[in-house]
Amino acid sequence: MLTKRIIPCLDVKDGRVVKGVHFKNLRDAGSPVELARFYDEQGADELVFLDISASHEGRKTMIEVVKATADQVFIPLTVGGGISEVEDVRRILKAGADKTAINTAAVKNPELIAKAARRFGSQCIVAAIDAKRVYEEREDRYVVDTPEGRCWFEVYIYGGRKGTGKDAIAWAKEVEALGAGEILLTSMDADGTKMGFDIPLTRAVAEETSVPVIASGGAGKVEHFYDAFAHGKADAALAASVFHYGEYTVQDIKAYLKARGIEVRL
């Protein structure tokens, strides 16, 4: 049976992992390659590198990081951050990444998803969507029931700094139609809270689209991963700090999920 996937995410800036990673047994916790290997050993199903370099030099360095990682780690690698044209996608895939995640550039230029998917195949184009709740009733929006009240979800871009007014669920359907092979869905409300994934958001997107959905933002406990799969209908769950701070290993989470009847690769 196809398993649910657990995906650690690393923020990489100028070739180094940022967001303090705290492991005693790592020689160099700032090395993306070293960390990638470490998570592979723990049983991570895939890895995501998010390039948060602001400079051109930083992005060039990222290509080297991808090459070095692909040389040593034999699980799928997705690279996101700062991808704005088809040529960026080509460079990253050529360096050894399996997928590229496109966020802001897709909102500004949806044709980018279509072009990249046609050229490289849908399977390597991940549409990354950052969504934030708006508690208002609107006829032209997908309004969803949540324990906190009825709301729709607004798409944010530029790393969550700018609202677009776009409906995230409608946008998810649109990127699927354009050719995205997967959706990386981050709840801006949940991100950083460690209070759990936004289940109503995840579920709505999973039900309205037919490509795999990766839930992201808010993971703090093993139960949260269970909820994302059992109630949110996600195909994969992504987390950062819960792994980086050593609160749980990927294995801990998978053992818990398996005990509760969720199919995982152990």
Binding site: M1, L2, T3, R5, D45, I75, P76, S122, Q123, G181, E182, S210, V211, P212, D235, A236, R265
Partner: peptide, 30 residues
């Protein structure tokens, strides 16, 4: 859901030299 994306388990139907050390139930990435 299409694509079939992720780790899925094998069911081995017959022996192959390709499968030394690999058994039914092992996961591979599709």
């Amino acid at each position: 859901k299409i694509p079939h994306m992720g780790w899925n388990s094998l069911e081995i139907k017959r022996d192959s030299r390709l499968l030394a050390g690999i058994k039914s139930g092992d996961y591979f990435y599709f």
